[in-house]
Amino acid sequence: MRVSLKSILIGSATLLGVAAAGQGVVSVVKLRAIEREVNEVATNWLPSVNVVNTISTATRDVRVKLYRFVVASETPQALAENEAGLNTALKTLDGLRRTYEPLISSAEEKALYDTFAPLWSRYTEGQQKVIELMKAGRQADALALTTSAAMADLNNGAIRALQRAVDFNREGAQRSTALSMASAGSAMLTAWIAMAISVVAALGAMLFSLFGVARPIERMTRTMGRLAGGDTGVEIPSRTRRDEIGDMAAAVSVFRDNLLQTRKLEAETVLARAGAEAQRQAAMRAMADSFEGAVGGI
């Protein structure tokens, strides 16, 4: 089977190009995946964790302010100030909820939030009853409702729902981080493999160029020089190769054979000339002898 040097060199260059291109494509794909996961962590999971934690803290703050509103509102001024503080806490909580709601990115997360919303709505209804009782001067009833098991269960249930949302978003952040690490590891492995292929291909091309091309051409050049100097006994290298070097060796072999044939023809010509000269001289001698005999006879 004939394999040309051009095909080998083109194949080596193609292998290097394919390895480089493959590394580039995989790196781009993996980097895009890493970028997507990091962006998900930065713009969704972590903000959600922070906001939900803040909402949970705000619900506790509302409960504390409600209790303060009940037990520390002994004067109308204190009642007004404590009610204002309670309303501020409620507004802060509402703002946090409006911040978090656009960050909900899945049906599972929405289901968790939907568990919190009705519980908190019922808690705020009870809270409104507490405010009405305080304004009616029924502090004992307001305190009993504030510290009741029903109000505590609603508040604790809302907090537990928020904690599940925190855990959900934290786990999502961990998954995205793990995917980013896996993509980075895969990209690194691909880079090492592509680099190894490139190094092997480059080393193979270099060794082949040195021992398969440069050295044979150098030997062929020396052989042609000796043939040009008349040394027809020189051995022609690389005659068994089935590539351009083998074609060159075949051409040099033909040149040597032609040179040998020429020398053989020259030698035969010299011998023929020598034989003709000997025959001419013999004929001349015979003619001289015949002439001498004829003259002697006369």
Rank of each mutant, 00 (worst) to 15 (best):
M287W: 10
R164N: 13
V51F: 05
L143F: 08
T75L: 02
G137E: 00
S198E: 05
M287V: 11
D257R: 12
I217A: 05
S180D: 01
L189C: 01
E101G: 03
T43H: 08
M1Y: 07
V28N: 14
F116L: 03
L271D: 05
G230P: 12
E101I: 14
F116N: 01
Q163V: 12
N169Y: 12
A205L: 00
E235G: 02
S148G: 15
A267K: 14
F211L: 12
A152W: 08
S12R: 08
Y100P: 04
M134E: 05
R164I: 05
L46H: 07
L207C: 02
A173E: 15
A19T: 06
E292F: 08
Q77R: 03
I217Y: 04
S180I: 02
S290T: 10
L31K: 07
A161H: 02
V199K: 01
T146M: 11
N82M: 00
T221G: 05
R170V: 02
N39I: 05
S238T: 13
Y67M: 13
D61K: 12
N44M: 04
F116V: 02
Q139D: 08
R2N: 00
M284H: 09
V199D: 00
T269R: 15
S183C: 07
A161F: 03
S198H: 05
N169H: 09
D153S: 10
V166D: 06
I34T: 04
A205E: 01
V62Q: 00
A191E: 03
R239P: 06
T57R: 03
Q139K: 11
E40Q: 12
G233Q: 15
S253P: 01
R98S: 11
L66W: 12
P237M: 06
D167H: 13
E132T: 06
I217F: 05
A13T: 13
D94K: 15
E109G: 03
